[in-house]
Design a protein around this nucleic acid. Sequence first.
DNA 1: CCACTTAAGCAACGCTGTTGCCAAAGTGCA
DNA 2: TGCACTTTGGCAACAGCGTTGCTTAAGTGG
Lengths: 381, 381
Amino acid sequence: MNRSNSGANLPTLRSHNAALVLDLLRVAGECGISRLELAERTGLTPQAVSKITARLRAEGLATDAGHRASTGGKPRTVLRLVPDAGYAVGMHLDRDELTVVLVDLAGAVAASRTAPLDFGAPADEVVAVAAYAVAAVRDGGAQSVDLPVLGVGVAVPGPLDHRGGVLHRVTGFPQWDGYPLRDALAARTGLPVVVDKDTNAAALGLALRAAGAGDFAYLHLGTGLGAGLVLGGGLYRGARTGAGEFGHQTVQLDGPVCSCGGRGCIEALCLAAVARGDVAEAARVLGTGAANLVGLLDIDRVMLGGRTVAADPDAYVRGVRAVIDERARLGGIDAPVPVTAAGGGDRPVAEGAAQLVLAPLFGRVAGADVEGADGGAVLVP
Amino acid sequence: MNRSNSGANLPTLRSHNAALVLDLLRVAGECGISRLELAERTGLTPQAVSKITARLRAEGLATDAGHRASTGGKPRTVLRLVPDAGYAVGMHLDRDELTVVLVDLAGAVAASRTAPLDFGAPADEVVAVAAYAVAAVRDGGAQSVDLPVLGVGVAVPGPLDHRGGVLHRVTGFPQWDGYPLRDALAARTGLPVVVDKDTNAAALGLALRAAGAGDFAYLHLGTGLGAGLVLGGGLYRGARTGAGEFGHQTVQLDGPVCSCGGRGCIEALCLAAVARGDVAEAARVLGTGAANLVGLLDIDRVMLGGRTVAADPDAYVRGVRAVIDERARLGGIDAPVPVTAAGGGDRPVAEGAAQLVLAPLFGRVAGADVEGADGGAVLVP
DNA sequence: CCACTTAAGCAACGCTGTTGCCAAAGTGCA
DNA sequence: TGCACTTTGGCAACAGCGTTGCTTAAGTGG
């Protein structure tokens, strides 16, 4: 929805429709989808879909996958995505651990690698370790075959400038302040690199997996508390990539002082409850923040994740759901917003990071420029 | 960013670019804009802009407006919007008052009308009064000339279904629950009708007026407290048009009971402070909610409006700004988000309502279907 | 007065999705 | 087995979009 410089011409049109079809193929998965279904879903004419899919097949991105049962005439030919036409590396740079995955176009993990990491080490050293991990996961995927890797998506904790790939004010790690992570890693790996917050990456991954889930908020409770927002079908980053500062929302005026200097922050109240073992109270505080968010943004779903939640997912889901249901009941709303656990601990973050690279191919994520090593090496021209 | 049924063809492309150019003409206002500037802003080639503007001129939507000073060669021809090529009616149905305005394409008010209203009267009676006001403002605009009125935008308090134009659960006015306001008024007036929340209408109007302001939140403090969100350049309504439920955000766990049944809602705390004359405390509570919002959504600006704010705008702006600045300082942010008063009391709501009809012409507002009397009588074919 | 610069239109072009038509590949009944 | 019917999907011609190459219009400056 970028208002500036958004004039559309025929190449724009072409890639838009191609991305749309590719996304439907991706969502259909193994079972595939027929040309006529694609036409119905996109609003394009069947003939246009035929032309678009012919191009995709010529480029090796789509292929035939059998036939549907006949309904009285010629049976429909089913098309599906060719998953190994492209790969992306997803990386989760956490405070004490490095997780790297290699995923294909369909989002399936082809290889993964986890190693301890000292995020407090000099930035160049961390980048070197990261670049080595990328190389390792590329080799490990298939033996001596050069896989077409489109780029590297990196998820990091704390605030950053997503467009420039530069970190800012990472609490406790001053050596990262202003470090051009994207360009450094792009130079080391020779691949385009996209950097984003860990919560955003996780939310993006979940948004692509659960198709049709609509708008939702992903709340990540680990060493800190943050949120990833999927609004209007796309990841919402805000004006300065700072959206999702959920942890320091005030839910108690003049409450206890938080590490951020504020008072009554959700994060402080929630983690204090966790520290004294009161999971129910932690969930209630989290639920209050979640209910605020649900009301403000009118979202369809709340998903909980992160290490702390993973330790006792049922308790958190139950506690958060109780607050949201109560608020909905008071507001006279019949169907309260569902609350679920994301599952998989920290793994969704690395997989979501890979989707930072892949999502633009499918027309997802507004304004995510994949740049770095070479300007705009995208698959669909 | 609607994901379903969004295949693009040539007419889509054409109207998209036409809307883009029309929007730039609108923003340029009286002074106009040259073809080459349009080309730079849109990213289109000058020749494409020439073709598009030729079409707009043929349709009577644009016209020449003199020349710029020469820079050594042929001087640029300046183009501008023809404001009276189209009009829209904006209506603010408040609890005790009805405000109707007639605005032209440029957003200028050509006629206005205010009358007391009993929102508690039977719905059909209110609609009859509203339809009469629409007819009156259409006649009053120009003497015996049939102005091209594109539709009616209606702003109402409380929750509703924007797509269907049906109200829901309006607190204190049960006769409106489920009433098909859009269709009823469309039948009475013979014009397409769009219905939205008052806060959304006001936010839209402000978004169009202050071009380039980026994302912002409009906080409306009147008989209640609500918010209108402009995210990613467009009005954000949420999945069920319920976004902006700002008043019942909890900012004090286990705080005083609110009329909604919850505890520690901003609205309850804020209005209680207003009732006892403590404007500073009201502003502080409002500021806390605003700061939460700024952090969560990373917006560029906060605007305050509504009758209560209009009574003492400086005090509210100062109080809200203080909280936001303090939070930014703690977060290490250099440039805190600006806070301003919207001004004009309730007038921005009616003008914004008119923009519910006009905005789609300029490519603004995602997913605002103007339907009603006749399906899709828009100006640009 | 003439060289130069800048703006804007004309004509031809490549490419998009669309339309009309036809071959391919099934089902179902006689 | 054969024929009528239904449905799918490709081929060819088409209208319309922005783009490119070139020409004309309308200024400035020496």
